[in-house]
Design a protein around this nucleic acid. Structure first.
Length: 204
DNA sequence: TTATAGATTGCCT
DNA sequence: GGCAATCTATAAT
């Protein structure tokens, strides 16, 4: 297996599709972060699709604003927002320019840079499943913020935040209702790798 | 201009 | 299981 940094970056065309397709196929891919000379990485084990006007739970549902503009732009870009006065959440835009949609990254299986990620989370490196099992935790582990990362191109091999494919394919994928929303709670748009111990704790 | 809900987390009982 | 923390976007006055 070549080093993580030499793996192929997932191309823009991958994201130029319905988030419900992209979400399923994103499971197992590797999110890479360069922090100075350090390399941080984790395998995507949980994500959620957010659609357009037909999805009342989506930020894009109420129209384009300065905050959510990335969701309306071309596919493959980072949409980062702040929630509950405490946490940053990372999404990737999907569908062509002008059509809103995206995926929320909810949990990673830590792969590389574990001591650094644990330090970012004020944890011991042994507390593996607390490092990135939740959207706020994931962002804190990778030091993701809106000022630093919003609108960043996740498909550029030179980007300090990107997604690569190491060939791993999950044995089984689970679809379930999305977490933490008050609207459209019945839609099964949450995707997890079945039996992964690294998904966020609420509900299997 | 003020109010409130929110794609969460961690600490309390 | 309950709830405070703490900021922002948007809705309501």
């Amino acid at each position: 297996m070549p080093p993580l940094v030499q793996l192929p970056t997932v191309p823009r065309a991958f994201y130029n599709r319905d988030p419900r397709i992209v979400g399923r196929e994103l499971l197992g891919k590797v999110l890479l972060r360069r922090e100075g000379r350090a390399l941080l990485a984790g395998r995507i084990v949980e994500c959620e699709a957010y659609l357009g006007p037909e999805d009342p739970a989506a930020h894009a549902a109420s129209g384009k604003t300065a905050r959510n503009a990335v969701l309306f732009g071309p596919p493959g870009y980072a949409y980062v927002y702040f929630i509950y006065g405490n946490h940053w959440c990372l999404n990737v835009s999907c569908l062509p320019d002008g059509t809103p949609g995206g995926l929320l990254f909810r949990a990673l299986e830590p792969l590389a840079g574990i001591p650094r990620m644990a330090a970012n989370r004020h944890l011991e490196p042994s507390q593996l499943r607390l490092i990135a099992s939740g959207p706020g935790r994931l962002s804190e582990a990778l030091a993701i913020t809106r000022p630093r990362d919003n609108a960043k191109d996740l498909t550029s091999p030179k980007s300090d935040l990107r997604i690569v494919d190491d060939g791993f394919r999950p044995d089984a994928i689970r679809e379930s209702p999305r977490i933490g929303i008050r609207k459209a709670m019945d839609l099964p748009l949450r995707y997890t790798i079945a039996n992964s111990p690294y998904i966020s704790a609420k509900r299997p």
